[in-house]
Simulated assay, not measured.
Amino acid sequence: MRFIFFSKTMYSETPRIRHQLAELLLSYGHEVIFYQRPLFFFESNKKLINQKISENFEIKQTKQLLHHQLRLIGLFSFLNSQYEAVQIISSLKKVNSDDIIINFNYDYSFLRKIFKENKIITLINDDFVAQAKFNKGKHVLEYLSKTLKISNATLTVSYPLLKQAKIFSESAYLFLPWSKEKYIRPIQSERKSVLLWAHIDVRIDFDLIEYILKENEKFEFHFVGPISEKNTDRIKLLKEKYNNLILFPATSLNHLNLNTYFVSIIPYRAGVADIEAVTASNKTFQLLSKGLPLVTYGMPNFYEHQAIFKAKTYQEFSEFINKAHKEFYILQSSIEELIKLQQPEQRYTKILSIINEE
């Protein structure tokens, strides 16, 4: 079976569910063609990327007229869709009747004109309406509704996005990221460190960070990941002020000394719509698979579980860190049972069942 992906990101970017799903399908022997972010028509100095990665995996790229945020009126959207459709048809050459289209773009309703008889599955992994920079997202909602209506099924990565999708799609499903690895039971050890494994950018609530550093001097806080330029000065000040903050460059989980950690934190700013729409990120089940409970902030719709502590205040966040330290080994059985249900085979079975629905 051949799967044709459409995305607004480059395949080389930080892995998200689109990469995870492509790799999952490849692992089961399917063919994948991945259309990554289109170039603009005026970028004549850039060469389109059309690359055969392996026997079953190919990356393609086309061009677009306007950035999707600037298609504020129907005419702009129509002209762009006509332009992109010609590009896609030209680059694809042949469409098989059993090709499955996996679409990550909210404004790609024109795909139905190209793939008239094929099954189209649209996967919504961001709150595109909340992210819209103009017109309060009204044009985005209109394009999203058209795309979901031409899709045979809609997959979403959170409860709020599922609720949104069900307005326009009768076949909408929750489809969360998963853990690539099995659960590993932590060894008995002295655990005094808190892990923040993330891109340290504007999403982080630095007032909360300062609060927990001050209130928990007995613990070390390890920040592992790249620091955005906008936050460099703030991090520098915190590092100078608190001895229990230790910085590390981006490192995979398997290359960290996990025996020192008892919890991982996700301290995002509250009141940010696209953050509040998150139920589980790509790293959620990866961290849990290592036996690490999670403490979150600013994420009211995050996954509900015994080992996931969702704080509403700074004080509660700090208290949950201490609770995770106290109950670390007690929580392991519940984490193990959760990760058993978040494996690649479960998601593969799920997507096949959706494809096979009449």
Results as ranks from 00 to 15, higher is better:
residue 96 N to W: 02
residue 81 S to G: 02
residue 358 E to A: 11
residue 177 P to C: 02
residue 220 E to Q: 07
residue 181 E to N: 09
residue 314 Y to D: 15
residue 188 Q to D: 05
residue 266 I to S: 13
residue 278 V to Q: 09
residue 58 E to H: 13
residue 227 I to G: 04
residue 130 A to Q: 14
residue 343 Q to L: 07
residue 33 I to P: 06
residue 342 Q to C: 06
residue 99 D to P: 03
residue 127 D to K: 09
residue 40 F to C: 03
residue 141 L to I: 08
residue 329 Y to K: 10
residue 121 I to T: 01
residue 190 E to Q: 07
residue 301 N to Y: 15
residue 22 A to E: 13
residue 134 F to L: 14
residue 29 G to Q: 08
residue 342 Q to T: 01
residue 333 S to M: 07
residue 38 P to D: 12
residue 89 I to S: 07
residue 258 L to E: 14
residue 12 S to C: 12
residue 276 E to H: 03
residue 344 P to C: 01
residue 336 E to C: 12
residue 294 L to C: 04
residue 288 L to M: 07
residue 280 A to W: 00
residue 51 Q to K: 14
residue 56 N to D: 12
residue 17 I to F: 02
residue 344 P to D: 09
residue 10 M to W: 06
residue 341 L to A: 13
residue 322 N to K: 09
residue 57 F to M: 11
residue 308 I to G: 09
residue 231 N to M: 12
residue 74 G to T: 11
residue 292 L to E: 09
residue 152 N to L: 01
residue 213 L to S: 13
residue 306 Q to L: 04
residue 356 N to K: 13
residue 128 F to W: 13
residue 125 N to C: 13
residue 115 F to K: 11
residue 287 L to V: 06
residue 166 K to T: 06
residue 126 D to G: 06
residue 237 L to I: 03
residue 36 Q to H: 06
residue 193 S to K: 14
residue 127 D to Q: 08
residue 256 L to N: 00
residue 247 L to D: 05
residue 87 Q to V: 01
residue 22 A to R: 11
residue 269 R to A: 08
residue 96 N to P: 00
residue 275 I to L: 15
residue 86 V to F: 08
residue 188 Q to R: 03
residue 95 V to C: 10
residue 240 E to K: 09
residue 109 S to F: 15
residue 62 T to C: 10
residue 177 P to S: 07
residue 166 K to S: 12
residue 259 N to W: 01
residue 189 S to R: 02
residue 143 Y to K: 10
residue 234 R to N: 08
residue 199 H to C: 04
residue 47 K to L: 11
residue 195 L to D: 00
residue 212 I to M: 14
residue 61 Q to H: 10
residue 160 P to N: 02
residue 14 T to L: 14
residue 141 L to V: 04
residue 237 L to M: 01
residue 190 E to H: 10
residue 180 K to Y: 04
residue 323 K to Y: 14
residue 226 P to Y: 15
residue 320 F to A: 08
residue 117 E to W: 04
residue 286 Q to T: 03
residue 66 L to T: 06
residue 346 Q to C: 04
residue 207 D to M: 04
residue 181 E to W: 01
residue 2 R to Q: 15
